[in-house]
Structures are given as structure tokens and as C-alpha cells.
């Protein structure tokens, strides 16, 4: 038990410590495959492998992984209903009368679409949960020659998102104080909509200030610069890419070899 804990600890560190670009490439390849391979079993594999990796290696609680699946499944469910109800050749009513709907091609196509949405979601979740956005931007600047101005703009935008909540709260305080109404713990939909424009204005002003701060402290468009704590490519990144692609290949082969069912 203790051993397992230690291993998981190492694994957690491992996934997080991997080079974000390696992960990005792997995830894109898997995504491309799940879009191209139109097979329910393959999609199942593309759901299970990232989920298991998250649970075992990253020690994400299984409940969290399940909860992550909920919006993706809702999303996928839309495809399921569209393809079952509106497939041209499927003539839904007739089939309903005649044969079991589960065997209809429309339904299995729908299931595959549903699973595909889930698979794309889980692959992305795998990436998002194991990657620090700052590290990704740094890696992009070092290895993908992303211009620093754009890199830092991305960086600033990502840092802004968590501040929006605090800023919205400040606005709510000021309004509640002036209107003399009690502040509700959570804003209602009407209040949320009324906060959109002030928040956008805040974001634009903050962008202007950040631009001044960055220029005053020497962010030049084209001068050489150091990028500290930039992720490097190590052997384990290569290992990760190889393992992930091998797994993809195996799944693909399994589907091709046994096309019967």
C-alpha cells in the first residue's frame, strides 16, 4: 500500500514535470486519431487510457474524473439525438416499429459520435490537469519561437481570469453599498449579465496598464531575453511520447484486425 502511494507520488510528479510541448503533441495525435477512426471501441480506449492515466499516475480522484465526464457527455448526447432522429436514411419511425433500435446503424453511429465527444474531452482534460499554463507559455517561447510579446500577453490573459471573480465581487460590494440592498452570496443571472460590461472594461484597462508595466520594465519586441524555468526536453519526455504513440498504435491495430463486430 505504502509502496503504491510512493509510486503514485512519483507518477504525479512525472506527469506534471513532463515537457508541455511533448504532451501537447501526443494529445493532438490522439485527438486526430479519435476524429479519424470512426469506431466505438477505439473511442472507448481513448476515453479509458487518459482517464486511467489521470487516476493512477496523477492521483486525480476517480470521482473528479467522472464529474469531468458529465459536461462532455451532455455535449455528446446532443450528437446522439441528432443522428438518431435526423439521419436521412434511417427513417426513424419505421425502424422503431420494425427492428430493435439498438442494432440500427444510425444508433451505432450516434453512439460513436457520443463516445468521440467524450474521448476528445478526456484527452483535453488530461492535458489541462497535468499542465501548468505558465510552463506551457514558456515552453512555447523557448521551443516554438513564440514571440515574447505574444507569450506574455497570453500569460497576462491567463492570470486575469482568476482575478475576474475578485473584481466582480468588488463591483458587487460597491453597488450593494450604494443601492442599500443586501448582497446575495451568489449573484443571480440578471446581476451576472449587468456585470459583463464593467468586467470587460476592467479587463481592457488592466491590459493597458499591464502593457505600460511591461514596456517600462524592458519588454522589447525583438531583443534577446532569458526565459527562466523553461521546461527542457529530457529522456522521459521521449519515453512518454513513445509509450503514448505505441498505445495509440496498438489500439488502432486491434480495431483494424478485428473489424467483424
Amino acid at each position: 500500500m505504502r509502496r503504491g502511494g510512493a509510486m503514485a507520488e512519483a507518477g504525479r510528479g512525472m506527469l506534471k514535470a513532463l515537457n508541455p510541448l511533448g504532451k501537447l503533441v501526443v494529445c493532438f495525435v490522439w485527438l486526430a486519431a479519435s476524429v479519424l477512426v470512426f469506431d466505438a471501441r477505439f473511442q472507448l480506449a481513448a476515453i479509458l487510457i487518459p482517464s486511467l492515466a489521470l487516476i493512477v499516475l496523477n492521483r486525480t480522484p476517480p470521482l473528479v474524473v467522472l464529474a469531468l465526464m458529465v459536461p462532455f457527455s451532455l455535449f455528446g448526447f446532443g450528437f446522439l439525438t441528432t443522428s438518431v432522429l435526423f439521419r436521412q436514411e434511417s427513417d426513424f419511425a419505421l425502424r422503431m416499429a420494425g427492428e430493435s433500435p439498438l442494432a440500427s446503424p444510425a444508433f451505432s453511429a450516434g453512439v460513436t459520435l457520443f463516445l468521440r465527444a467524450l474521448a476528445c474531452g478526456m484527452i483535453s482534460a488530461f492535458f489541462a490537469l497535468t499542465t501548468d499554463p505558465g510552463a506551457l507559455v514558456r515552453a512555447l517561447m523557448v521551443h516554438a519561437r513564440l514571440p515574447p510579446r505574444i507569450g506574455y500577453s497570453l500569460f497576462a490573459a491567463m492570470q486575469l481570469v482568476p482575478d475576474l471573480a475578485a473584481e466582480a465581487q468588488q463591483m458587487r460590494y460597491a453597488r450593494a453599498m450604494k443601492s442599500g440592498r443586501r448582497l446575495r452570496r451568489l449573484p443571480g443571472p440578471g446581476e451576472l449579465v449587468s456585470l459583463v460590461i464593467p468586467l470587460l472594461a476592467f479587463a481592457i484597462r488592466r491590459a493597458g496598464r499591464t502593457a505600460i508595466a511591461m514596456e517600462a520594465r524592458g519588454l522589447a519586441p525583438d531583443a534577446p531575453r532569458t526565459i527562466t524555468q523553461a521546461p527542457v526536453f529530457r529522456r522521459r519526455d521521449a519515453a512518454f511520447v513513445l509509450v503514448a504513440l505505441a498505445a495509440l498504435l496498438l489500439c488502432g491495430i486491434a480495431v483494424v484486425v478485428d473489424p467483424a463486430s
Binding site: 510579446r149 505574444i150 500577453s153 497570453l154 497576462a156 490573459a157 491567463m158 486575469l160 481570469v161 475576474l164 468586467l199 470587460l200 479587463a203 481592457i204 488592466r206 491590459a207 493597458g208 499591464t210 502593457a211 505600460i212 511591461m214 514596456e215 519588454l219 519586441p221
Partner: peptide, 14 residues
């Protein structure tokens, strides 16, 4: 300009 770049990214984020 840097300000414009930042505004576009920040708009993207919001």
C-alpha cells in the same frame, strides 16, 4: 502595439 496585443488576448480570455 503591445497594448493592442494584450487587449486582444485579454478579450479572448474574458
Amino acid at each position: 502595439t503591445l497594448r493592442e496585443t494584450l487587449i486582444v488576448t485579454v478579450l479572448g480570455a474574458v
